[in-house]
């Protein structure tokens, strides 16, 4: 039900994002989605790639502080109001969204999100019959 997301600690330093992406991007790894968030002190780069374990290994080999975590990639159709409806399920179950980023292809929309409770989120997804992409199918997107 979940996919693996790579998070990278980023100092607010010119050129650092480019440096890190250059390490990862190669013929075998494709970046599906990425987001950078920042505070005044530091940033976190979050990545969904076709091979999270290899991505993580590359970062480790370069001694970059990074982390691999489970997030949901929920599929929505392209009609208006879909994101709102999806989030509503979580809110009604009393779950908070810690972060979320979205992207869409010509066929569907995707919400990558993490809540404050992984197990409870699984139940919400099951009950609401939301569709999730799993890691094996990430490369097909």
């Amino acid at each position: 039900m979940t996919i693996q997301q790579i998070s990278v600690f980023l100092e607010n330093k010119f050129g650092r994002l480019h440096e890190i992406l250059s390490l990862i991007a190669n013929d075998e790894i494709r970046i599906i989605a990425a987001t950078v968030s920042d505070t005044s002190e530091f940033g976190i780069l979050r990545l969904v790639t076709t091979d999270p374990h290899k991505t993580f290994q590359i970062l480790k080999n370069h001694q970059i502080s990074s982390n691999i975590s489970e997030v949901f990639a929920i599929v929505t159709d392209r009609n208006s109001g879909q994101i709102t409806q999806t989030i509503e399920h979580f809110t009604q179950a009393g779950l908070s969204i810690e972060y979320m980023y979205c992207f869409s292809t010509s066929k569907a929309g995707f919400l990558i999100l993490r809540t404050n409770n992984l197990e409870a989120a699984r139940n919400v997804i099951r009950r609401a019959s939301l569709v999730c992409v799993d890691q094996a199918h990430i490369a097909d997107l």
Binding site: S37, T39, R46, S65, N67, E98
Partner: peptide
């Protein structure tokens, strides 16, 4: 410097600081 035990969670990092 951070060690390998990096968390993905902002609030944890801010609390740590």
């Amino acid at each position: 410097e951070l060690s390998d035990l990096f968390t993905d969670d902002y609030s944890v990092l801010q609390r740590l600081t």
